[in-house]
Amino acid sequence: MNNTKSILLFQPDVYQKMLDDAIHCFPDECCGFLFGTENENIRSFTKILVVENTKEGDKKRRFSITPRDYMKAETLASELDLTLLGVYHSHPVHPAIPSEHDLSVAMPYFSYVIVSVYGENDIHVRSWKLNEERQFEEELVA
């Protein structure tokens, strides 16, 4: 088992686009996919795909991505010769800590990046990945 924490490096435009999406969707949750390369414990995000939050009902507290958008992301990764490394979503007016619901749905391997938004100048980004015991461990956002 590899207990070394992943270090996440965001290409600046990818990071900015993710924050812009979180602000644009506020007070609803935004969501999308992150692509890039992986070298040992370093993940470099070089591409972002913004997708629609299709959750029916309370988008301020929940998000959902359609299977079709997921398949589109896998296809894009293959076309660009990048790896689909993770998913981001926002927590409007809530800390960047995964909820029980986030945990129940999470898949292994993926980085789950959470953008906490309290306002345009009050944004915090943290990321989490499942360990072998299906518990979230925090990754380091460089």
């Binding site: 959750k55 929940r62 749905v105």
Partner: peptide
Amino acid sequence: LSIVPAIAGG
């Protein structure tokens, strides 16, 4: 046959 994980959360 495609295995497609549900991507959702709160």
